[in-house]
Amino acid sequence: NAVGLLHWEMRQAGSLVMQAADASRLPAGGALAVDREGFSQYVTDKLMALPNVTLERGEITALPDQGQWIFATGPPHSAAPGQAIQAETGADRLAFFDAIAAIVHAESIDRRIAWAQSRYDKGENEAERRAYLNCPMDKAQYEAFIDALLAAEKTEFHEGETAGYFDGCLPIEVMAERGRETLRHGPMKPVGLTNAHDPETKAYAVVQLRRDNALGTLFNIVGFQTKMKYGAQVEVFRMIPGLEKARFARLGGIHRNTFPNSPTLLDSQMRLRSRPHIRFAGQVTGVEGYVESAAMGLLAGRMSAGELAGAPLRDVPQDSAHGALIHHITGGAEAKTFQPMNVNFGLFRPVDGLKGGRRGRRDRYKAYSDRAKTAWQGWLDG
């Protein structure tokens, strides 16, 4: 898939982030999940060991006039730099709301109800194939859960504060509002799973939890981003079979992300058009996802280093995964409707002579990947 291709390209480029991810990887049934503390410490240690790196902590309240700079604060940056960017660009910032899921203490999950299994038994080893805990619901339990979810007290937006949601990270109650069956065909879909405690009974819906740390003491409720108030979350989530006595290490929440209109403000080298000594990197550029954000950081770093060395890099080839993303955010997207974007094959230019539709999808995706790898390796080789 496109994310896997992006992983490959980053590894070929010697990405520190991917090295850290591999060093702190958790079983996740074929997905890439990491121990947060181990991941962060790995990156910090590697950076601080470099002889030409100095760490200074503090807030930048104005855009610098000289030098090479990379603005990589993430969308929820503090007010002062955000205001400085807005003043510089003369454009209203775009915004969307992002939500996070609750995390449960593993010891509080009832293993007499929940069972360990990755969907379709995906994974190269036993740990991967048992990376998720699954909590089954019958139809009556599901309907009661949806009723409680819809009735629960939610966090309200402040007066005058409006923004959309990123479709890849919708709060579960927003999904439920779109239809009572939406969750059962989304994060609560029961397919590819067999209840180890009752193999003959097919669950109507399933809530999955995934390890959130290397010790296996914390589990994240997969896909359960929410804007419910804390008290409501505890009540509603304890309706899930197996979580009746759940203790929460962190409850879900919602935050407002802001980002510039990159198609109009950034050039093909991720530089602010009005101040080309300043680059943007990470999620603030208008990509969505941890890997995509890290990929934009990789590009910004390489491009800045090339300029400092007096050997500017040529533009990233559009046929690579990195190139498809950067092309989208710096000009390929429609500026008036610009929203954060994950990497996906819909961003790639068509390959001539291949069938459209679902039947030709496998051949198309392989062709995209083969072409991307050739283009990316050529760019790395200079």
Rank of each mutant, 00 (worst) to 15 (best):
E173V: 13
Y165W: 14
Y132R: 03
K366N: 12
Y230L: 04
L150I: 14
L215I: 01
D267S: 07
Y204S: 03
A249E: 09
H105G: 01
E334D: 15
S262A: 06
T194D: 00
D110W: 01
N220Y: 12
F97G: 03
V234F: 01
A163Q: 11
E288G: 03
G253L: 01
L265E: 15
A91S: 10
S40V: 06
A84Y: 10
L63S: 14
H105A: 08
E288L: 09
D352W: 00
G82C: 08
L6C: 08
Q377G: 01
F145H: 08
T61G: 04
G310Y: 11
G306L: 03
P171T: 05
Q318F: 00
V343F: 08
E153Q: 13
E124L: 06
R178L: 06
G286N: 02
R130E: 11
I85K: 00
F157W: 07
A214S: 07
I146F: 14
L150R: 10
K366L: 13
L325E: 06
G4H: 05
M303H: 05
K366W: 02
V207L: 12
L5F: 04
D35H: 02
P260Q: 12
E235A: 08
E292V: 02
E107T: 05
D319H: 12
A309D: 15
L94A: 07
W69K: 11
P171K: 00
G356F: 05
M188A: 13
G360Y: 04
R279K: 01
S369C: 10
T44E: 15
A102M: 09
I329F: 05
G14M: 11
W115D: 13
R359A: 13
R178E: 13
E173N: 07
T54V: 06
A335D: 03
E181V: 05
R358G: 12
F166D: 07
P317W: 13
A294M: 12
G168M: 15
L325M: 11
E334F: 00
R11Q: 09
L32E: 09
G38F: 02
V191D: 15
S293Y: 05
E9M: 10
G306A: 01
K336Y: 00
I326Y: 00
T264D: 15
L380T: 01
A196Y: 04
M341A: 11
Y204A: 02
N257Y: 14
A375S: 12
S15F: 07
G74R: 06
L47C: 09
L63K: 14
H185M: 09
D381R: 03
